[in-house]
């Protein structure tokens, strides 16, 4: 197999920006904007219907949640659910554990992922692309297939029932490497060459050039890793036994008994557990800003 694709943008070289205002009439523009808003709003509402059900359920009694047909508006609004849940399970502990795990794993993933990605994208050495392909292909193996061998290894290393097991398991995935590599690919090689001529080492290029240039990718990787860790249930379930180590997802499942489930409590907890992600998402969007890639040229 020959070299894997580098994809420098195959487009005409940029022209100097022209900010001169083109003549445009304001009328149709306003109409178009209104239409766009109307359309987006309609789509957004449709998309949010299941979340609406979650919120509605979080305000009901347990035996009013799974009704047929669905009752969209609770018979009585039990806001007390949002207070009760803190007494029923140690929510604060669980949330704290989830935050700790998600932050630790996200940081490690960002750091090692972007670092390795630089090796895969900008350093050329034999065997690089084959190794990369093997990396990616392993994502395809469902975790359930190697869960038991992995558990036995962890048990042997006496890491089960500690945070180490989850962190070591999830922080080094190939996903981040792949994502960052693709992003680096779209940063022109000429930039790196110029930096090399200026006397920067490869590590210097990574730190001084690539990292700042790849903020949007780092932001999206951070967000997605955080969300996936935050929502992961099976990993913590298998590895964390002591109650004081449990994450929020395990906490929510503890409302499911052998023969019954407290659906309202589960939905209350689910609504609460979505909040940190929403905050993160709103913050993370600050980094989705165009033009960083070229601003580093000079």
């Amino acid at each position: 197999m020959t070299a894997l694709p580098d994809a420098p943008p195959a487009v005409a070289p940029p022209r100097p920006p022209e900010r001169s205002a083109r003549p445009r009439s304001r009328g149709p523009r306003l109409v178009r904007r209104a239409l766009a808003y109307g359309f987006l709003l309609a789509v957004a509402l449709l998309v949010l219907v299941p979340f609406g059900w979650m919120v509605s359920s979080s305000l009901k009694r347990n035996n009013q949640v799974l009704t047929v047909p669905i009752e969209w508006i609770p018979q009585e609004f039990r806001w007390s659910n949002f207070i009760e849940i803190w007494d029923r399970i140690p929510m604060a502990t669980y949330l704290g554990n989830s935050v700790f795990l998600s932050v630790a794993i996200t940081l490690l993933q960002l750091l090692t992922g972007s670092f390795a990605a630089y090796g895969f994208a900008k350093v050329r050495f034999p065997g690089r692309d084959a190794l990369f392909l093997a990396y990616i292909a392993t994502i395809a193996v469902p975790w359930q297939a190697y869960m038991v061998p992995q558990y036995i290894m962890m048990q042997r290393a006496e890491l089960t029932n500690t945070y180490w097991s989850i962190i070591l398991l999830q922080a080094f995935g190939a996903f981040g490497v792949f994502l960052m590599r693709q992003y680096y690919m779209s940063i022109p090689d000429e930039l790196c060459e110029a930096a090399r001529i200026d006397g920067l080492t490869e590590y210097g290029i990574y730190r001084r050039l690539m990292l700042p240039l790849s903020k949007p990718a780092l932001a999206s990787l951070a967000l997605l890793t955080f969300v996936n860790t935050w929502n992961d249930y099976m990993g913590p379930f298998i590895y964390l036994t002591s109650n004081e180590l449990w994450t929020i997802q395990l906490g929510l499942r503890s409302f499911v008994g052998q023969y019954d489930a407290e659906y309202a409590m589960i939905m209350t907890g689910a609504v609460l557990s979505v909040l940190p992600i929403v905050i993160l998402f709103l913050i993370g969007q600050r980094y989705f800003i165009r033009g960083i890639a070229t601003s580093g040229l000079k």
Binding site: M147, Y151, R156, T160, F237, I238, R253, G257, Q258
Partner: peptide, 15 residues
């Protein structure tokens, strides 16, 4: 957790 109790017990015993 009640939901996947047998899966966890199987894994634990394997370990």
């Amino acid at each position: 957790l009640a939901d996947d109790y047998p899966d966890k017990v199987t894994t634990m015993l394997a370990g």
